[in-house]
Design a protein around this nucleic acid. Structure first.
Length: 502
RNA sequence: GGCGCUAUCGUCUAGGGGUUAGGACGGGUGGUUCUCAGCCAUCAAACCCGGGUUCGAUUCCCGGUAGCGCUGCCA
Protein backbone atom coordinates (compact mmCIF):
# COMPACT_ATOMS: atom_id res chain seq x y z
CA UNK A 1 0.00 0.00 0.00
CA UNK A 2 2.76 2.32 0.93
CA UNK A 3 5.14 3.45 -1.72
CA UNK A 4 8.71 2.98 -0.68
CA UNK A 5 10.46 6.21 0.13
CA UNK A 6 14.01 6.64 1.22
CA UNK A 7 13.71 10.29 2.15
CA UNK A 8 11.23 9.89 4.95
CA UNK A 9 10.42 13.12 6.77
CA UNK A 10 8.08 13.05 9.73
CA UNK A 11 7.18 15.60 12.31
CA UNK A 12 5.89 15.91 15.82
CA UNK A 13 3.79 19.05 16.07
CA UNK A 14 2.59 19.71 19.59
CA UNK A 15 0.84 22.86 20.70
CA UNK A 16 2.40 24.37 23.80
CA UNK A 17 -0.83 24.60 25.76
CA UNK A 18 0.06 22.16 28.52
CA UNK A 19 2.60 19.65 29.67
CA UNK A 20 3.43 16.70 27.50
CA UNK A 21 1.35 13.73 28.55
CA UNK A 22 1.74 10.09 27.74
CA UNK A 23 -0.55 10.23 24.71
CA UNK A 24 1.44 12.99 23.05
CA UNK A 25 4.66 11.31 23.93
CA UNK A 26 3.59 8.09 22.30
CA UNK A 27 2.85 10.04 19.11
CA UNK A 28 6.25 11.73 19.28
CA UNK A 29 7.88 8.39 19.95
CA UNK A 30 6.29 6.63 16.97
CA UNK A 31 7.36 9.47 14.70
CA UNK A 32 10.86 9.19 16.05
CA UNK A 33 10.96 5.41 15.73
CA UNK A 34 9.62 5.47 12.21
CA UNK A 35 12.10 8.13 11.12
CA UNK A 36 15.04 6.29 12.63
CA UNK A 37 13.94 2.94 11.29
CA UNK A 38 13.73 4.40 7.80
CA UNK A 39 16.84 6.51 8.05
CA UNK A 40 14.70 9.61 7.71
CA UNK A 41 14.37 12.93 9.44
CA UNK A 42 12.41 13.69 12.59
CA UNK A 43 11.21 17.26 12.77
CA UNK A 44 9.81 19.27 15.67
CA UNK A 45 7.31 21.96 14.88
CA UNK A 46 5.54 24.15 17.41
CA UNK A 47 1.85 24.74 16.71
CA UNK A 48 1.21 27.84 18.73
CA UNK A 49 -1.57 29.41 16.73
CA UNK A 50 -3.84 29.35 19.75
CA UNK A 51 -2.61 32.64 21.12
CA UNK A 52 -4.87 32.41 24.15
CA UNK A 53 -3.50 29.21 25.55
CA UNK A 54 0.04 28.88 24.25
CA UNK A 55 2.79 29.52 26.80
CA UNK A 56 6.54 29.70 26.48
CA UNK A 57 6.80 27.72 29.68
CA UNK A 58 5.21 24.75 27.97
CA UNK A 59 7.60 24.98 25.04
CA UNK A 60 10.52 24.78 27.44
CA UNK A 61 9.00 21.86 29.29
CA UNK A 62 8.38 20.10 26.03
CA UNK A 63 11.97 20.45 24.94
CA UNK A 64 13.15 19.17 28.30
CA UNK A 65 10.84 16.17 28.19
CA UNK A 66 11.78 15.22 24.65
CA UNK A 67 15.46 15.42 25.48
CA UNK A 68 15.00 13.41 28.62
CA UNK A 69 13.43 10.63 26.60
CA UNK A 70 16.16 10.85 24.01
CA UNK A 71 13.71 11.78 21.28
CA UNK A 72 16.17 14.09 19.60
CA UNK A 73 14.93 15.80 16.50
CA UNK A 74 17.03 16.36 13.41
CA UNK A 75 15.37 19.53 12.34
CA UNK A 76 12.97 22.12 13.66
CA UNK A 77 12.38 24.26 16.67
CA UNK A 78 15.64 25.33 18.31
CA UNK A 79 17.85 23.27 15.98
CA UNK A 80 16.83 24.93 12.73
CA UNK A 81 16.76 23.54 9.21
CA UNK A 82 16.01 24.44 5.62
CA UNK A 83 12.27 24.83 6.02
CA UNK A 84 11.94 27.14 8.98
CA UNK A 85 10.82 28.92 10.91
CA UNK A 86 9.41 25.99 12.85
CA UNK A 87 7.05 27.89 15.06
CA UNK A 88 3.73 28.64 13.43
CA UNK A 89 3.31 32.15 14.74
CA UNK A 90 6.49 33.01 12.85
CA UNK A 91 5.08 31.70 9.59
CA UNK A 92 2.04 33.93 9.23
CA UNK A 93 3.12 35.35 5.87
CA UNK A 94 3.28 31.87 4.40
CA UNK A 95 -0.27 30.98 5.42
CA UNK A 96 -1.56 34.26 4.09
CA UNK A 97 0.07 33.63 0.74
CA UNK A 98 -1.65 30.28 0.36
CA UNK A 99 -4.97 31.55 1.66
CA UNK A 100 -4.95 34.37 -0.85
CA UNK A 101 -4.05 31.95 -3.58
CA UNK A 102 -7.13 29.93 -2.74
CA UNK A 103 -9.30 33.03 -2.73
CA UNK A 104 -7.98 34.10 -6.12
CA UNK A 105 -8.63 30.66 -7.50
CA UNK A 106 -12.21 30.72 -6.23
CA UNK A 107 -11.49 27.89 -3.81
CA UNK A 108 -11.96 30.04 -0.74
CA UNK A 109 -13.81 33.22 0.10
CA UNK A 110 -13.93 36.13 2.49
CA UNK A 111 -16.55 35.84 5.17
CA UNK A 112 -17.77 38.91 7.03
CA UNK A 113 -20.08 37.20 9.47
CA UNK A 114 -19.58 38.18 13.08
CA UNK A 115 -18.28 35.55 15.45
CA UNK A 116 -21.09 36.19 17.93
CA UNK A 117 -23.76 35.94 15.26
CA UNK A 118 -22.42 32.60 14.17
CA UNK A 119 -22.29 31.30 17.69
CA UNK A 120 -25.86 32.36 18.27
CA UNK A 121 -26.89 30.70 15.04
CA UNK A 122 -25.15 27.51 16.03
CA UNK A 123 -27.05 27.48 19.29
CA UNK A 124 -30.33 27.94 17.47
CA UNK A 125 -29.55 25.13 15.09
CA UNK A 126 -28.66 22.84 17.94
CA UNK A 127 -31.84 23.77 19.78
CA UNK A 128 -33.84 22.82 16.72
CA UNK A 129 -32.03 19.52 16.64
CA UNK A 130 -30.23 20.42 13.46
CA UNK A 131 -26.60 19.84 12.64
CA UNK A 132 -24.81 23.10 13.37
CA UNK A 133 -23.27 24.37 10.16
CA UNK A 134 -22.19 27.58 8.57
CA UNK A 135 -25.04 29.01 6.51
CA UNK A 136 -22.85 29.88 3.54
CA UNK A 137 -24.08 33.45 3.70
CA UNK A 138 -20.85 35.00 2.39
CA UNK A 139 -20.07 32.19 0.00
CA UNK A 140 -21.39 33.95 -3.02
CA UNK A 141 -20.29 37.52 -2.45
CA UNK A 142 -18.52 38.47 -5.68
CA UNK A 143 -14.79 38.48 -5.12
CA UNK A 144 -14.29 42.11 -6.18
CA UNK A 145 -16.94 43.30 -3.80
CA UNK A 146 -15.43 41.27 -0.99
CA UNK A 147 -11.96 42.62 -1.68
CA UNK A 148 -13.27 46.16 -1.57
CA UNK A 149 -14.80 45.56 1.84
CA UNK A 150 -11.53 44.13 3.06
CA UNK A 151 -9.63 47.11 1.73
CA UNK A 152 -11.98 49.41 3.56
CA UNK A 153 -10.86 47.65 6.69
CA UNK A 154 -13.84 45.44 7.28
CA UNK A 155 -12.95 42.42 9.38
CA UNK A 156 -13.04 39.14 7.50
CA UNK A 157 -11.99 35.55 7.80
CA UNK A 158 -11.16 33.32 4.88
CA UNK A 159 -13.25 30.21 4.50
CA UNK A 160 -12.75 27.18 2.34
CA UNK A 161 -15.33 26.84 -0.43
CA UNK A 162 -16.14 23.17 -0.07
CA UNK A 163 -17.46 21.74 -3.34
CA UNK A 164 -20.91 20.14 -3.30
CA UNK A 165 -21.46 16.47 -4.00
CA UNK A 166 -17.86 15.60 -3.95
CA UNK A 167 -16.20 12.43 -2.76
CA UNK A 168 -13.14 13.01 -0.62
CA UNK A 169 -10.74 10.10 -0.60
CA UNK A 170 -7.54 9.46 1.29
CA UNK A 171 -5.40 6.57 2.42
CA UNK A 172 -4.33 5.80 5.94
CA UNK A 173 -1.68 3.20 6.66
CA UNK A 174 -3.29 2.20 9.92
CA UNK A 175 -6.98 2.70 9.20
CA UNK A 176 -7.00 1.94 5.51
CA UNK A 177 -8.87 3.55 2.65
CA UNK A 178 -11.19 6.36 3.70
CA UNK A 179 -14.05 7.86 1.72
CA UNK A 180 -16.33 10.64 2.79
CA UNK A 181 -18.83 12.91 1.09
CA UNK A 182 -18.00 16.61 0.97
CA UNK A 183 -21.43 17.37 2.44
CA UNK A 184 -19.91 16.21 5.74
CA UNK A 185 -17.41 19.01 5.76
CA UNK A 186 -18.31 22.59 6.49
CA UNK A 187 -16.88 25.72 4.90
CA UNK A 188 -14.27 25.94 7.61
CA UNK A 189 -12.32 29.03 8.52
CA UNK A 190 -8.78 28.90 7.20
CA UNK A 191 -7.45 32.27 8.26
CA UNK A 192 -8.63 34.48 11.12
CA UNK A 193 -8.90 38.26 10.89
CA UNK A 194 -5.66 38.66 12.83
CA UNK A 195 -3.85 36.64 10.21
CA UNK A 196 -3.36 33.51 12.28
CA UNK A 197 -4.30 30.27 10.58
CA UNK A 198 -6.58 27.64 12.03
CA UNK A 199 -5.11 24.27 12.84
CA UNK A 200 -6.28 22.37 9.78
CA UNK A 201 -4.96 24.98 7.41
CA UNK A 202 -1.63 25.62 9.07
CA UNK A 203 -1.07 21.92 9.32
CA UNK A 204 -1.53 21.35 5.61
CA UNK A 205 0.62 24.27 4.58
CA UNK A 206 3.43 23.37 6.93
CA UNK A 207 3.45 19.70 6.10
CA UNK A 208 3.62 20.61 2.44
CA UNK A 209 6.23 23.34 2.84
CA UNK A 210 8.35 21.19 5.12
CA UNK A 211 8.15 18.29 2.68
CA UNK A 212 6.66 15.96 5.24
CA UNK A 213 6.23 12.50 3.74
CA UNK A 214 4.29 10.76 6.51
CA UNK A 215 1.89 12.28 8.98
CA UNK A 216 1.69 10.17 12.12
CA UNK A 217 -0.63 11.74 14.65
CA UNK A 218 -3.37 10.97 17.13
CA UNK A 219 -6.56 9.30 16.04
CA UNK A 220 -8.58 12.35 17.00
CA UNK A 221 -7.29 13.88 13.80
CA UNK A 222 -8.71 11.16 11.60
CA UNK A 223 -11.95 13.13 11.45
CA UNK A 224 -10.01 16.25 10.47
CA UNK A 225 -8.26 14.53 7.64
CA UNK A 226 -11.03 14.77 5.01
CA UNK A 227 -10.93 18.56 5.40
CA UNK A 228 -7.18 18.54 5.10
CA UNK A 229 -7.24 16.19 2.14
CA UNK A 230 -9.61 18.62 0.47
CA UNK A 231 -7.31 21.57 1.13
CA UNK A 232 -4.44 19.70 -0.48
CA UNK A 233 -6.61 19.04 -3.45
CA UNK A 234 -7.82 22.61 -3.79
CA UNK A 235 -4.24 23.75 -3.59
CA UNK A 236 -3.34 21.30 -6.30
CA UNK A 237 -0.67 19.63 -4.22
CA UNK A 238 -0.05 16.04 -3.13
CA UNK A 239 -0.96 15.01 0.38
CA UNK A 240 1.48 13.06 2.54
CA UNK A 241 0.81 9.52 3.65
CA UNK A 242 -1.35 9.45 6.75
CA UNK A 243 -1.05 7.07 9.67
CA UNK A 244 -3.31 7.73 12.62
CA UNK A 245 -2.46 6.34 16.01
CA UNK A 246 -5.17 5.06 18.31
CA UNK A 247 -5.88 6.85 21.54
CA UNK A 248 -4.42 6.00 24.93
CA UNK A 249 -7.06 6.04 27.65
CA UNK A 250 -7.17 5.82 31.42
CA UNK A 251 -8.03 2.61 33.32
CA UNK A 252 -11.74 3.40 33.03
CA UNK A 253 -11.48 3.64 29.26
CA UNK A 254 -12.01 7.36 29.39
CA UNK A 255 -9.65 10.04 28.25
CA UNK A 256 -6.51 10.20 30.35
CA UNK A 257 -6.82 12.92 32.99
CA UNK A 258 -5.61 14.05 36.37
CA UNK A 259 -7.84 11.72 38.29
CA UNK A 260 -6.02 8.77 36.73
CA UNK A 261 -2.90 9.80 38.61
CA UNK A 262 0.28 10.71 36.82
CA UNK A 263 -0.27 11.46 33.16
CA UNK A 264 2.29 14.11 32.36
CA UNK A 265 5.79 13.04 31.56
CA UNK A 266 7.30 15.31 34.21
CA UNK A 267 5.51 13.38 36.90
CA UNK A 268 7.01 10.12 35.75
CA UNK A 269 10.44 11.61 35.60
CA UNK A 270 10.10 13.03 39.08
CA UNK A 271 8.96 9.70 40.42
CA UNK A 272 12.13 8.17 39.11
CA UNK A 273 11.04 6.16 36.11
CA UNK A 274 13.86 5.54 33.67
CA UNK A 275 13.47 7.25 30.29
CA UNK A 276 14.30 4.03 28.46
CA UNK A 277 11.52 2.31 30.40
CA UNK A 278 9.00 4.97 29.41
CA UNK A 279 10.07 4.61 25.81
CA UNK A 280 9.86 0.84 26.03
CA UNK A 281 6.45 0.75 27.68
CA UNK A 282 4.96 3.39 25.40
CA UNK A 283 6.26 1.59 22.34
CA UNK A 284 4.17 -1.40 23.40
CA UNK A 285 0.97 0.63 23.41
CA UNK A 286 -0.51 0.25 19.96
CA UNK A 287 2.49 -1.48 18.48
CA UNK A 288 3.88 -4.94 19.01
CA UNK A 289 7.29 -6.33 18.17
CA UNK A 290 7.39 -9.16 15.62
CA UNK A 291 8.87 -11.50 18.21
CA UNK A 292 7.69 -11.96 21.77
CA UNK A 293 10.47 -10.11 23.54
CA UNK A 294 9.00 -7.12 25.30
CA UNK A 295 11.97 -5.65 27.10
CA UNK A 296 13.97 -3.70 24.57
CA UNK A 297 16.31 -0.76 24.41
CA UNK A 298 15.68 2.06 21.96
CA UNK A 299 17.97 0.66 19.31
CA UNK A 300 16.13 -2.64 19.33
CA UNK A 301 12.77 -0.93 19.13
CA UNK A 302 13.95 1.19 16.23
CA UNK A 303 15.18 -1.81 14.33
CA UNK A 304 11.94 -3.73 14.86
CA UNK A 305 9.54 -0.85 14.34
CA UNK A 306 7.11 -0.72 11.46
CA UNK A 307 3.77 0.93 10.85
CA UNK A 308 2.35 -2.37 9.65
CA UNK A 309 2.33 -3.63 13.21
CA UNK A 310 0.50 -0.64 14.63
CA UNK A 311 -2.95 -1.55 15.88
CA UNK A 312 -6.17 0.33 15.40
CA UNK A 313 -7.89 -0.19 18.70
CA UNK A 314 -7.47 2.20 21.59
CA UNK A 315 -5.26 1.16 24.49
CA UNK A 316 -5.48 1.66 28.20
CA UNK A 317 -2.51 3.00 30.08
CA UNK A 318 -1.55 0.40 32.68
CA UNK A 319 0.77 1.58 35.44
CA UNK A 320 1.30 -1.98 36.65
CA UNK A 321 2.91 -2.98 33.42
CA UNK A 322 4.87 0.26 33.22
CA UNK A 323 6.20 -0.60 36.68
CA UNK A 324 7.28 -4.01 35.51
CA UNK A 325 9.00 -2.58 32.44
CA UNK A 326 10.71 -0.03 34.63
CA UNK A 327 11.89 -2.70 37.10
CA UNK A 328 13.34 -4.68 34.23
CA UNK A 329 15.29 -1.66 33.02
CA UNK A 330 16.33 -0.84 36.56
CA UNK A 331 17.89 -4.30 36.78
CA UNK A 332 19.84 -3.70 33.61
CA UNK A 333 20.91 -0.16 34.47
CA UNK A 334 24.40 0.80 35.53
CA UNK A 335 24.59 1.22 39.32
CA UNK A 336 26.71 4.35 39.19
CA UNK A 337 24.10 5.98 37.01
CA UNK A 338 21.35 4.99 39.43
CA UNK A 339 23.36 6.42 42.29
CA UNK A 340 23.32 9.78 40.53
CA UNK A 341 19.60 9.54 39.93
CA UNK A 342 18.85 8.66 43.50
CA UNK A 343 20.85 11.46 45.14
CA UNK A 344 18.04 14.07 44.95
CA UNK A 345 15.60 11.80 46.79
CA UNK A 346 17.99 11.34 49.69
CA UNK A 347 18.77 15.02 49.78
CA UNK A 348 15.08 15.73 49.99
CA UNK A 349 14.83 13.37 52.94
CA UNK A 350 17.61 15.29 54.64
CA UNK A 351 20.04 12.40 54.65
CA UNK A 352 22.87 14.62 53.42
CA UNK A 353 23.41 17.98 51.80
CA UNK A 354 26.31 17.19 49.54
CA UNK A 355 27.68 13.95 48.25
CA UNK A 356 31.22 12.70 48.51
CA UNK A 357 32.73 9.44 47.33
CA UNK A 358 31.87 7.66 50.56
CA UNK A 359 28.26 8.67 50.32
CA UNK A 360 28.15 7.51 46.72
CA UNK A 361 29.51 4.17 47.79
CA UNK A 362 26.97 4.07 50.57
CA UNK A 363 24.14 4.75 48.12
CA UNK A 364 25.49 2.05 45.88
CA UNK A 365 25.28 -0.43 48.72
CA UNK A 366 21.72 0.68 49.42
CA UNK A 367 20.77 0.24 45.78
CA UNK A 368 22.37 -3.17 45.76
CA UNK A 369 20.25 -4.18 48.72
CA UNK A 370 16.97 -2.51 47.97
CA UNK A 371 16.66 -2.06 44.22
CA UNK A 372 14.59 -5.21 43.76
CA UNK A 373 12.10 -3.75 46.21
CA UNK A 374 11.10 -0.73 44.15
CA UNK A 375 9.04 -0.01 41.06
CA UNK A 376 10.65 3.37 40.54
CA UNK A 377 13.57 5.18 42.09
CA UNK A 378 11.79 7.67 44.35
CA UNK A 379 10.49 4.74 46.38
CA UNK A 380 13.99 3.88 47.49
CA UNK A 381 14.14 6.24 50.48
CA UNK A 382 11.04 4.75 52.00
CA UNK A 383 12.14 1.21 51.24
CA UNK A 384 15.49 1.60 52.96
CA UNK A 385 14.04 3.46 55.89
CA UNK A 386 15.20 0.68 58.23
CA UNK A 387 18.77 1.79 57.68
CA UNK A 388 18.14 5.19 59.22
CA UNK A 389 15.24 4.63 61.57
CA UNK A 390 16.12 1.91 63.96
CA UNK A 391 13.53 1.31 66.65
CA UNK A 392 14.43 -1.43 69.15
CA UNK A 393 11.04 -1.06 70.83
CA UNK A 394 9.60 -2.64 67.74
CA UNK A 395 10.54 -6.05 69.10
CA UNK A 396 7.75 -5.83 71.64
CA UNK A 397 5.29 -4.34 69.18
CA UNK A 398 5.64 -6.23 65.92
CA UNK A 399 3.78 -9.53 65.88
CA UNK A 400 6.16 -11.21 63.47
CA UNK A 401 9.16 -10.16 65.48
CA UNK A 402 7.56 -11.34 68.70
CA UNK A 403 6.95 -14.69 67.11
CA UNK A 404 10.60 -15.01 66.21
CA UNK A 405 11.72 -14.05 69.70
CA UNK A 406 9.32 -16.46 71.34
CA UNK A 407 11.14 -19.31 69.70
CA UNK A 408 13.53 -21.23 71.83
CA UNK A 409 17.10 -19.99 72.01
CA UNK A 410 16.31 -16.82 70.10
CA UNK A 411 17.67 -14.71 72.91
CA UNK A 412 20.71 -16.93 73.24
CA UNK A 413 21.48 -16.40 69.58
CA UNK A 414 21.31 -12.63 69.90
CA UNK A 415 23.37 -12.71 73.06
CA UNK A 416 25.93 -14.96 71.53
CA UNK A 417 26.09 -12.87 68.37
CA UNK A 418 26.59 -9.76 70.44
CA UNK A 419 29.42 -11.29 72.37
CA UNK A 420 31.16 -12.23 69.17
CA UNK A 421 31.00 -8.75 67.69
CA UNK A 422 31.12 -6.42 70.66
CA UNK A 423 34.86 -6.03 70.49
CA UNK A 424 35.10 -5.73 66.75
CA UNK A 425 35.55 -2.18 65.60
CA UNK A 426 34.38 -2.53 62.05
CA UNK A 427 32.15 -5.45 61.24
CA UNK A 428 33.11 -6.33 57.69
CA UNK A 429 31.86 -9.29 55.76
CA UNK A 430 34.58 -11.64 57.07
CA UNK A 431 34.04 -10.67 60.68
CA UNK A 432 30.32 -11.02 60.34
CA UNK A 433 30.60 -14.43 58.72
CA UNK A 434 32.96 -15.62 61.44
CA UNK A 435 30.68 -14.35 64.19
CA UNK A 436 27.71 -16.17 62.71
CA UNK A 437 29.77 -19.31 62.20
CA UNK A 438 30.96 -19.46 65.75
CA UNK A 439 27.43 -18.85 67.06
CA UNK A 440 26.33 -21.74 64.93
CA UNK A 441 28.98 -24.04 66.39
CA UNK A 442 28.61 -22.86 69.93
CA UNK A 443 24.85 -23.15 70.13
CA UNK A 444 24.36 -25.91 67.62
CA UNK A 445 21.71 -23.84 65.88
CA UNK A 446 21.45 -23.20 62.18
CA UNK A 447 19.06 -22.09 59.45
CA UNK A 448 16.16 -19.86 60.31
CA UNK A 449 16.54 -20.43 64.03
CA UNK A 450 19.91 -18.79 63.74
CA UNK A 451 19.31 -16.12 61.14
CA UNK A 452 15.91 -14.86 62.21
CA UNK A 453 17.07 -13.80 65.66
CA UNK A 454 20.21 -12.22 64.22
CA UNK A 455 18.07 -10.24 61.80
CA UNK A 456 15.90 -9.08 64.67
CA UNK A 457 19.01 -8.21 66.64
CA UNK A 458 20.29 -6.00 63.87
CA UNK A 459 17.11 -4.47 62.48
CA UNK A 460 14.38 -5.10 65.03
CA UNK A 461 12.39 -6.21 62.02
CA UNK A 462 11.33 -9.56 60.66
CA UNK A 463 12.14 -8.99 57.02
CA UNK A 464 14.34 -7.09 54.61
CA UNK A 465 17.31 -7.67 52.32
CA UNK A 466 19.96 -10.30 53.06
CA UNK A 467 21.48 -9.74 56.49
CA UNK A 468 25.02 -9.51 55.21
CA UNK A 469 23.96 -6.71 52.90
CA UNK A 470 22.32 -4.86 55.74
CA UNK A 471 25.44 -5.28 57.86
CA UNK A 472 27.45 -3.85 55.02
CA UNK A 473 25.16 -0.88 54.52
CA UNK A 474 24.80 -0.09 58.19
CA UNK A 475 28.47 -0.42 59.03
CA UNK A 476 29.60 1.64 56.11
CA UNK A 477 26.82 4.15 56.60
CA UNK A 478 27.72 4.67 60.21
CA UNK A 479 31.14 5.94 59.10
CA UNK A 480 29.73 8.29 56.49
CA UNK A 481 29.29 11.96 57.06
CA UNK A 482 25.51 12.00 57.07
CA UNK A 483 22.95 14.38 58.48
CA UNK A 484 20.81 11.42 59.35
CA UNK A 485 23.00 9.12 61.41
CA UNK A 486 23.16 5.40 60.86
CA UNK A 487 23.58 3.34 63.99
CA UNK A 488 26.27 0.65 63.65
CA UNK A 489 25.47 -3.02 64.12
CA UNK A 490 27.01 -3.37 67.53
CA UNK A 491 24.92 -0.59 69.05
CA UNK A 492 21.82 -1.89 67.42
CA UNK A 493 22.17 -5.35 68.86
CA UNK A 494 22.96 -3.86 72.22
CA UNK A 495 19.77 -1.80 72.18
CA UNK A 496 17.71 -4.81 71.21
CA UNK A 497 19.21 -6.79 74.06
CA UNK A 498 18.45 -3.96 76.45
CA UNK A 499 14.82 -3.94 75.49
CA UNK A 500 14.76 -7.70 75.64
CA UNK A 501 16.12 -7.73 79.17
CA UNK A 502 13.69 -5.07 80.28
C1' G B 1 -28.68 14.36 16.54
C1' G B 2 -25.15 13.65 12.04
C1' C B 3 -20.62 11.52 10.37
C1' G B 4 -16.35 8.64 11.34
C1' C B 5 -13.33 5.03 13.99
C1' U B 6 -12.85 0.75 17.17
C1' A B 7 -14.24 -4.18 19.49
C1' U B 8 -9.46 -11.35 21.39
C1' C B 9 -8.19 -13.10 28.97
C1' G B 10 -9.04 -7.56 34.18
C1' U B 11 -4.88 -4.87 31.10
C1' C B 12 -1.20 -4.65 26.70
C1' U B 13 -1.36 -7.75 22.63
C1' A B 14 -0.20 -12.19 18.79
C1' G B 15 -2.91 -14.81 15.42
C1' G B 16 -6.14 -15.92 11.72
C1' G B 17 -11.74 -19.47 7.28
C1' G B 18 -10.42 -25.63 10.38
C1' U B 19 -5.29 -23.62 16.16
C1' U B 20 -5.31 -27.30 22.73
C1' A B 21 -6.67 -19.17 20.32
C1' G B 22 -0.08 -17.90 21.81
C1' G B 23 2.86 -14.36 24.83
C1' A B 24 3.43 -10.41 28.60
C1' C B 25 1.60 -7.54 33.02
C1' G B 26 -1.45 -8.31 37.11
C1' G B 27 -3.75 -12.39 40.21
C1' G B 28 -3.58 -17.69 42.45
C1' U B 29 -0.55 -21.91 43.93
C1' G B 30 4.12 -24.35 44.76
C1' G B 31 9.60 -24.30 44.97
C1' U B 32 14.20 -21.67 46.36
C1' U B 33 16.96 -18.24 49.75
C1' C B 34 17.19 -16.65 57.30
C1' U B 35 12.72 -13.23 55.91
C1' C B 36 10.67 -9.78 52.27
C1' A B 37 11.75 -8.47 47.31
C1' G B 38 13.73 -11.38 43.46
C1' C B 39 14.21 -15.85 40.76
C1' C B 40 12.02 -20.58 38.93
C1' A B 41 7.79 -23.61 38.06
C1' U B 42 2.65 -23.92 37.67
C1' C B 43 -2.75 -22.63 37.42
C1' A B 44 -7.12 -19.67 36.34
C1' A B 45 -8.54 -16.15 32.75
C1' A B 46 -10.65 -13.90 26.22
C1' C B 47 -12.49 -14.04 20.40
C1' C B 48 -19.23 -8.06 22.38
C1' C B 49 -24.36 -9.66 20.46
C1' G B 50 -27.51 -11.08 16.16
C1' G B 51 -27.86 -12.36 11.21
C1' G B 52 -25.63 -13.84 6.67
C1' U B 53 -21.46 -16.12 3.19
C1' U B 54 -19.26 -21.03 3.75
C1' C B 55 -18.79 -27.95 4.46
C1' G B 56 -16.78 -24.86 8.44
C1' A B 57 -16.49 -18.64 11.22
C1' U B 58 -13.38 -15.72 16.54
C1' U B 59 -11.37 -14.45 11.57
C1' C B 60 -15.05 -12.21 5.68
C1' C B 61 -19.95 -9.21 4.94
C1' C B 62 -24.31 -6.69 7.06
C1' G B 63 -27.02 -4.98 11.36
C1' G B 64 -27.12 -4.02 16.64
C1' U B 65 -24.74 -2.53 21.06
C1' A B 66 -20.93 -0.13 23.62
C1' G B 67 -16.69 3.08 23.79
C1' C B 68 -14.04 6.93 21.59
C1' G B 69 -13.39 10.98 18.10
C1' C B 70 -15.05 15.05 14.92
C1' U B 71 -19.23 18.10 14.38
C1' G B 72 -15.21 25.79 16.87
C1' C B 73 -12.41 32.07 14.17
C1' C B 74 -9.09 24.82 19.95
C1' A B 75 -5.42 21.82 18.43
Amino acid sequence: MEIFMDNVRVRFAPSPTGFLHVGNVRTALFNFLFAKNRGGKFILRIEDTDLERSEKEYEDALVRDMKWLGLNWDEGYLVGGDFGPYRQTERLKIYKKYALKLVEGGKAYYCFCKKEELEAERERQKARGEIPRYSGKCRNIPIDEAKKKVEKGEEAVIRLKVPKNYKIVFEDIVFGHQEIDSSQVDDRVLLRPDGTPTYNFACVIDDFEMKITHVLRGEQHLSNTPLQALIYEMLGINPPIFAHLSTINGPDGKKLSKRHGATSLVEFREKGYLPEAMVNYLSLLGWSPPDEEEIMDVEEIISKFSLERVSKSPAIFDVQKLNWVNREHLKKADLDRLVQLVIPYFKKEGVFLDVNDDIKKFLKLILDGFLTHVDYLSQITKECNMIFDFNPENIVEDEEVKKILSREAARDVINCFYNKIKNIDYLDFENYKNAVLSCMKELGIKGKNLFHPIRVGITALSSGPEIEKIVDIVEFGSRCDLLKKVIPVKDRVKSVLDVLNG
